[in-house]
Design a protein around this nucleic acid. Structure first.
Length: 924
RNA sequence: GGAGUUUUAGCUCAGCUGGUUCAGAGCAUCUGCCUUACAAGCAGAGGGUCGGGGGUUCGAAUCCCUCAAACUCCACCA
């Protein structure tokens, strides 16, 4: 049957993925092999595959597939994250479209909708990962909000509360008025913003005098409770203790003094609004000032603002309105343009409102210590290392983590309140009730059931019923569940000594974007040491961010993120894996072009594919082309007619060369893997396959058309291909499987994904050097042919003149190969140029390392060749001079290493030989 | 404001211990080829004062200083 010249991945990729699943190649159970474990950074359950995931998961898949082939027990645990704030926002929107408002339904009803929605749309991303070829153990798929993982979160909360590291308190928090929840400091992104600095007059009571105060937030004026100046500021000393009138609301407040105020900034006066600014809050505390909270949870002005027309209006509307009102009242002095940093919510993009509220916190000082030390001392290694700096700066002074969120989608905080306000932390209401009725309290106001002592429960008079207990309404930050991920996916909380956790933990490597180094990586390390007493992973591979051509981060709002699945459709999963990895060293950002066309029209797709500016699509295209190349190698070998009656050809030497070359390349590739230089590993594999195997090896062994191939050569070639496919398999799993399956007879349940990964053998370096000489000569001959426009098919005669006998012997040994590749006929060697035909042409090997070589082709010397030879002569003369100078420098000879000096001597000899040869050519 | 990273060919990047694997790769460009596996291919070629300046050294893309530009993280002054 005719095999197509083009590789068509559309059916093939799916076919093999099903084969892998059917045979359970990806499933892992503890056994006596060495484990190799990766836990996936769980994507949002409602997310869809984007470029970041592709890069990230391609890398994980490469590492896990390679380990699996190396005979390790490879286990890649997949799963999803409930992503409380993002998912809740999506569910709220979905309900809104149905005409349901969150505030009109109960928590239970909401969760019911949310779970239904999650069941319907959740996990799409995992299906998409399968398209990419991800070899996860799907039977192990976990979800951060499933029962066992939620229980783990509750357990860890109780554990930390018991230790006194979790506390509850009223503090200034970052309030997200769209998500209507508190956020941790890490979830706040500061963005530069063009603001207006408003200079406002605060009149002194019973005086014509006034203080001018600068603010960017005039809408908070109604919350002012003082004006503050620096006690050392001569300008304002006499105002301290006086009373001023707050504009708009005409409240009387005092002028106070605090060193915090920067005399140089603005007018040197600061209005104090403790409810809406962190610094103001602290000053307020120091001076016992009242707090007037004028902004409601949704970012509108509350009743407390005291101005009817402001109540219920958005803070930004009020800001503009307040400026107008101030102007009308003659209190506006001036307005200046001003650039400042405004905090926004990482998830909703809302401008953060500093707000005072009761939240739960995790004290970081203790838990961070081992996490800090073990990264600094390389117990946990970071790749690339530069991220240690970033980690250090954050971990040296970690701030307490606000872990409560005013949401419903997440683990509800296991804190229960008695009617008297007492708090009981317990895993559920039943246990809380037990504790409550025991009537015992420890210093923290609670005691765990396990510590109740020996009194039978029935003997204790019931003080409370379940109805007396109210559970805290808040849920926990999503990261408070994902930080347990490497432990909880193996049920390390539910059953701390189970076989899985013992076997798979700690995991080998974590692959993630550096943007979540604090959110997730740092906290997983803390959790690992706290809950398992051990690191969660040995290595961390940080990927860069994927950016568009303009260097912008890819985001939905910019619309610059290509549709990952369209890319796969266009270039195949193998092609995209290649493209996304080929130029993406660890931790460096990857520039990826955007414009995958939305249109399905063929001409639009063609236009896109052919767009020369489309850089990374270009790389995907290269990847796709590579699959096609591999496909055609397969076709070539299939067309060979194999015969054991054909003699071993005189080019069979190339088999030894490729054997050595393969091992040398493989050892380089191993080294790249060792250091997580995956991009370079892929480049090396590509070179080995494409350049070395296809362009040199196969061209040499390829029999003349219509002639059969020697059996030994054929079998050796198939074996080489087999090995190459294995090395390439982790990078491009589908095409390698397809060819591997067809190149030799295979059993029904066989697969390259569990075939043995080649090991590095010792290799003959001499043959590599010889080949280099021979191949160099082939290139020179081709160049000569090109420059004098001799057609490929014209066979030309040549004679050689080598300077040294050893070199000449090498050429003669490799001559059958040279003859075949350059389409020349060797007519023997000469000792002296004068023996040669007068019409001969000499071409000097320029990079021919050890010796010069003249090649004679019975065609006339071209003028430009003579010109070039003259240029080269000049270059080598200069070169010789510099080397001579170096060698006559006493300091050099005294200081440089022996081999360096030896090398210089060699260079000198080389240069002299070349000069001689070039001079001969030019004279001709 | 504090810290870090980057700057090498038109583009994206290698260059790991100062010295011929030291100026490299891929893409793009140019020139030949539809050579019976592959035009999604093959064979060649031309592109670079290694951001500027100074220093250390026999020797610097590589080490030090300095300036310039870009990026990132942390902190944040109304």
């Amino acid at each position: 049957m005719e095999i197509s010249t083009k590789y068509d991945p559309s059916q093939i990729e799916q076919k093999w993925y099903e084969h892998w699943l059917k045979n359970k190649f990806f499933s892992s159970k503890p056994d006596n092999r060495e484990p190799f474990t990766i836990v996936i950074p769980p994507p949002n359950v409602t997310g869809v595959l984007h470029m970041g995931h592709m890069l990230n998961n391609t890398i994980q898949d490469i590492l896990i597939r390679r380990a699996r082939m190396q005979g390790k027990n490879a286990c890649w645990v997949p799963g999803t994250d409930h992503a409380s704030i993002a998912t809740e926002a999506k569910v709220v929107n979905m309900l809104k479209e149905k005409g349901i408002s969150k505030k009109d339904i109960t928590r239970e009803e909401f969760l019911h909708h949310a779970f239904a929605w999650k069941d319907k749309y959740g996990g799409i991303i995992l299906e998409q990962l399968k398209k990419l070829g991800a070899s996860c153990d799907w039977d192990r798929t976990r979800f951060t909000m499933e029962e066992d993982l939620s229980a783990a979160v509750i357990d860890s909360f109780i554990h930390l509360y018991k230790k006194g590291w979790i506390y509850r308190g009223v503090r200034m928090v970052n309030w997200d008025p769209i998500g209507k929840t508190a956020l941790s400091d890490e979830e706040v992104i500061f963005k530069e913003s063009q603001s207006k600095m408003i200079y406002v007059k605060y009149k002194l009571k019973d005086s014509e005098d006034a203080l001018v105060v600068a603010t960017v937030r005039p809408e908070t004026i109604p919350g002012d409770v003082a004006i503050c100046v620096n006690p050392n500021d001569e300008r304002y000393k006499h105002f301290i203790g006086k009373t001023v009138i707050v504009p708009l609301v005409n409240r009387e407040v005092k002028v106070i003094a605090d060193e915090y105020v920067d005399m140089e900034f603005g007018t040197g006066t600061l209005k104090i609004t403790p409810a809406h600014d962190i610094a103001d809050y602290e000053i307020g505390m120091r001076h016992n000032l009242p707090i007037i909270d004028t902004i409601a949870d949704d970012g509108t002005m509350s009743e407390a603002v005291g101005i009817t027309k402001y109540i219920g209006k958005d803070r930004f509307w009020v800001r503009r309105e307040a400026i107008k009102d101030l102007e009308e009242q003659g209190l506006l002095v001036k307005i200046e343009e001003y650039k400042n940093q405004v905090g926004t919510s990482e998830r909703t993009g809302a401008v953060i409102e500093p707000k005072l509220s009761m939240q739960w916190w995790l004290k970081m000082s203790e838990i961070a210590k081992p996490a800090y030390e073990n990264v600094m001392n390389d117990t946990i290694r970071f790749f690339p290392e530069k991220f240690k700096n970033m980690y250090r700066s954050w971990m040296e002074n970690p701030r307490d983590w606000c872990i409560s969120r005013q949401l419903w989608w997440g683990q509800q905080i296991p804190a229960f309140y008695l009617p008297n306000g007492e708090v009981i932390v317990a895993k559920d209401k039943k246990e809380a009730l037990l504790i409550a009725n025991k009537g015992l309290t420890n210093v923290d106001g609670f005691i765990l059931a396990a510590e109740r002592g020996n009194i039978p429960y029935s003997d204790i008079p019931a003080l409370y019923t379940e109805n007396d207990l109210t559970q805290d309404e808040d849920v926990l930050d999503t990261w408070f569940s994902s930080w347990l991920w490497p432990i909880s996916v193996f049920d390390g909380f539910k059953d701390p000594n189970n076989a899985d956790i013992q076997y798979y933990y700690p995991t080998n490597v974590l692959v993630t974007g550096f943007d979540i180094i604090f959110f997730w990586v740092a906290r997983m390390i803390m959790a690992g040491y706290e809950f398992k007493g051990k690191l969660p992973f040995k290595d961390v591979y940080f990927t860069g961010l994927i950016r568009d051509k303009l260097g912008r981060k890819m985001s939905k709002s910019l619309g610059n993120s290509p549709d990952a699945l369209r890319l796969i459709d266009l270039y195949s999963a193998d092609g995209v894996r290649f493209g996304v990895l080929y130029n993406s060293p660890a931790g460096n950002d990857v520039l990826f072009d955007t414009g995958v066309p939305k249109s399905q029209k063929q001409e639009d797709i063609d236009a896109f594919i052919q767009d020369p500016d489309s850089h990374n699509s270009k790389l995907c295209e290269q990847g796709r082309n590579f699959t096609n190349k591999i496909w055609n190698v397969f076709r070539l070998l299939k067309t060979f007619e194999v015969s054991d009656s054909v003699e071993l050809p005189n080019t069979a030497l190339v088999i030894d060369w490729f054997e050595a070359n393969f091992n040398q390349a493989l050892s380089e590739i191993e080294d790249h893997f060792e250091k997580y230089r995956l991009s370079e590993a892929l480049q090396a594999v590509t070179k080995l396959f494409w350049d070395d195997f296809c362009d040199w090896y196969l061209e040499i062994i390829k029999p003349v058309y219509g002639k059969p191939i020697n059996k030994i050569v054929y079998e050796k070639s198939v074996e080489f291909l087999d090995r190459l496919l294995r090395v390439l398999h982790p990078f491009m799993p589908f095409i390698t499987e397809e060819v591997w399956q067809n190149i030799a007879p295979r059993q029904e349940n066989e697969s390259i994904c569990v075939a043995e990964y080649p090991k590095v053998n010792t290799f003959d370096k001499t043959i590599l050097q010889e080949a280099e000489l021979a191949f160099e000569m082939v290139k020179r001959l081709r160049e000569a042919r090109n420059s004098r426009k001799i057609q490929q098919k014209v066979r030309i005669d040549m004679i050689i003149k080598a300077i040294s006998k050893t070199i000449a012997d090498v050429y003669i040994k490799w001559m059958p190969i040279i003859e075949k590749l350059a389409n020349v006929e060797f007519k023997g060697s000469v000792k002296d140029l004068s023996e040669s035909n007068a019409d001969s042409v000499k071409i000097v090997l320029q990079n021919g390392s050890e010796a010069s070589l003249s090649i004679f082709i019975p065609e006339g010397l071209k003028d430009e060749e003579r010109k070039k030879a003259k240029e080269d002569l000049e270059y080598y003369k200069g070169f010789k001079e510099s080397v001579t100078k170096k060698l006559s420098n006493e300091k050099f000879v005294a200081n440089a290493k022996a081999e360096v000096i030896e090398n210089e001597r060699k260079k000198l000899a080389d240069a002299e030989a070349k000069i001689k040869a070039l001079e001969e050519i030019i004279q001709q």
